[in-house]
Design a binder for these strands. Structure first.
Lengths: 116, 116
DNA sequence: CAATGACTTGAAGAAGTATTCAATTAGTCA
DNA sequence: TGACTAATTGAATACTTCTTCAAGTCATTG
């Protein structure tokens, strides 16, 4: 692995940094799903979804399999499901913490605003 | 909060998606640090670091305080430290899992390549 | 006060991502 | 085979984000 770890991490997070990709991963967390269903749940154009699915596929975080005329996607491993669970948990904590944080920041902001 | 949760998540991950920002957060996980020290540890230009620190500040994930002529940064809360710990743990699991995953993918790739 | 050190900001160009639409592949069914 | 649905790909345009450098702030010290 020639890539430094912190860079791998950054790439990984960047890969998660798109609303459609997040939604796909969360939906797949419930189990494998055909594209048709993702499409209905997420409500973007088919080609847009496909583009984002391609990003996830390239990252090796999901797999796809054709069954007849439909293609079904799944998380590439249990690690990924864990990750999404952890992400959800942490994010909600973060966003909850944000409220208190905002208060602290507001003090600074108004102090700064008073000068302007 | 008018922003849908999955979009907030995406923004959050995008905010993490930069090598310098990752390193800063990990260093600050050990405790507050003056810019001078971050600069020495990370080894980028001062202005580059400042730009990335500004991103983290805007996101409300770190705070800065001037003490005399030096500026010291710290994680905005314990949640952030937790997040970085979780991220590290999960990422290393993920990257470890990547090895097996690669093997599986290689099969598919060579099968596909054989047709070309 | 001028000069220096620590850090931040602004702005321009380069590089990377997203969005969109047309074209394409793959499978089904009449 | 030809028409149709499902999904993917390619490519152009529009957007963001990075990087870099010059200029700026703020405190310290000669």
């Amino acid at each position: 692995m020639a890539v430094p770890l912190y860079q791998a991490k950054a790439e990984f997070f960047r890969m998660l940094g798109h609303p459609v990709r997040i939604r796909v991963l969360e939906l797949l967390g419930e189990g494998p799903k055909p594209v048709r269903e993702l499409l209905a749940d997420i409500g973007v154009e088919a080609s847009s979804l496909s583009q984002q699915l391609a990003v996830l596929r390239r990252a090796g975080i999901v797999t796809s399999a054709r069954e007849g005329s439909t293609v079904t996607y799944a998380l590439a491993g249990p690690d990924v499901a864990d990750l999404m669970r952890a992400a959800r948990r942490i994010l909600t904590e973060m966003l909850a913490g944000q409220a208190e944080l905002l208060d602290e920041l507001r003090e600074t902001d108004t102090a700064a605003a008073a000068e302007a």
